[in-house]
Amino acid sequence: MVVNYQSIFQHCAAAFLLFWGGGLIAQETLQVVTQNYQESIPFGLGTEVSIEGEKADVYLSSWDRNQVAVYLDLSSAHQDRRVAEQDLERMQHTMIQEGSKIIVRNYISKPEGGERPESMLKAKYTIILPANCPVNLSNFFGSADVRDLQNAVVINSEFCQLDLLNLRGQISISTRFGDINGRQIAGNVQIFSNRSNINLSEIQGVVNIKSRYGRIELDAQPENLDLAIDAVRTDIVFNEPPVGYYSFLLRTQNGEIITPKEMNFQVRQLSADTQEALYNPGTTESEVKIHTTFGNIVIGPPLSN
């Protein structure tokens, strides 16, 4: 068989040009008009911050000043700058203080029977506040990056990606069609998720998760964990469990339980469609309880000491 290297090279070159050229042709330039608002509000004992976002990317973090700093960008992108400017006028916002509550909100003035905006509209919040400031965030469409808070965090979101880092205290999260990625989450944690995947690592404290349609993957610190997961049509994976730090009670209906041989789980078939697995090292009161239906439970290989 004679290999025609020249022909192969020509085909590769043509494919490369087609791919690269196609990519270049497909690009288009949009004019972006951004209206920026900044406000700094003194923080006092009892002050709490409420953010009500729509199509917003929210970044929330803390600092060591007694000030709440709010930076809000409302932006509009379109091929035609004048159209972008006109559509930007539909984006509204409020920053008000009602008693001890600071309320920040953005929304779109919806036309009644009028023309829809042609531009891509978006809000972007950067909010920096004292770590002990309670926060209440709701966001529909967009994303939220919340980190370094130590008091109370309540998040209510739909179609919103949540990234959480270093949160302590009372944490309550409700999400629909929005995945959660969390690391170093500790305290009294409640999560209600619907059609969302959850990925948590280095969790501590009392953690309760209720989930419908999704996948939960987590790992934990080797101490102080009481975890309860009650799920429907959700697969659950617990990675690298530290042996001897907590007991496990696992149950699935119409699913499968997979456990590592090293931990020697007691597996029982409770009924034709229900399986249970127990593990108790007898050295701890910390407990991991997982219950799911139409989903599998996988306990990964244990953390090597």
């Binding site: 497909a26 690009q27 949009l30 004019q31 972006v32 008009v33 951004t34 900044q38 406000e39 509000i41």
Partner: peptide, 16 residues
């Protein structure tokens, strides 16, 4: 007091 507002213009490249 403590409030600021400004407007800016830029461009982005996107795939339709």
């Amino acid at each position: 007091l403590g409030k600021r507002a400004s407007i800016s213009y830029s461009t982005i490249e996107v795939v339709p």
